[in-house]
Amino acid sequence: MRNPGTMRIPGPPPHTPPVYRLWWYAMRLFVALVCIFLLAPILAIVPISFSSGSFLTYPLPGFSLQWYAEVFEPRPWMFALKNSLIVGSGATVLATTLGTLAALGLAKGNLPGRSAVNAFLISPMIVPLVITAVGVYFFFARIGLNASYPGLILGHTALAVPFVVITVTATLEGFDTNLIRAGQSLGAGPLRVFRRITLPLIAPGVASGAIFAFAISFDEVVVTVFLAGPAQRTLPRQMFDGIRENISPAILAVATLLVLVALALMVTIGLLKRRSDRLRGLHG
């Protein structure tokens, strides 16, 4: 036990030979550079979104909220946000419902061909997005679902579902099935056991799955490029065109707001995971 009164300066363990000492510092320096690589680009765009000029370069000519004012105009950004929220919530509800049921089914075990079924359910993650997008585009063209909200929601649901299945399955893995047996032995029927025991225990996992599903839909471009018409233009679709044609600080203002969304999602997932581990009696 370290004496809490002394401050330990970070450094290699004592009595390390010089070559390893050097290695110790080199590795930390390298990892620090990797960390800069990971986070710096995301942070570097934030100040430009407050620029009073329209160039994307430093030094900034001055401070202004004009780009945020532009983003909060109804067209094109608020329209795109509305579409993203419609599609995202539809896909989230569908994917979470279907994915949670399937994860519960997979957890029941002793199903013939279980691993093959599981592989099929998560295959939308593996198949390249363009292939899914082109396939669904041709198919929906036949049945008249292209350029419609339901079509886009169905497409996003297919992409989001594997994340729900994986997240809920992980929650069910540490699940103490004795709790279910206890409930049954006390006379509860299957529905009641589900409502009173299973659901409260897996709720954080289901919520995490829902957040994953929403994040997937909210960030989806490739399938959207093919399936969405002008009336379903989503936020990422709008950004994609913006970056391709003329990238303005308004896009960086949207980007900054999306970083805040990412931060919120990350924190929520972290809290849900902690809650889920505690409910299942795990300590991480």
């Binding site: 680009p41 765009i45 950004m239 990238i247 896009i251 980007a255 990412a262």
Partner: peptide, 13 residues
């Protein structure tokens, strides 16, 4: 944080 940040945000960055 990068993992949760939109792909387009990172690309535009």
């Amino acid at each position: 944080l990068p993992f949760w940040t939109s792909l387009l945000v990172r690309t535009s960055a």
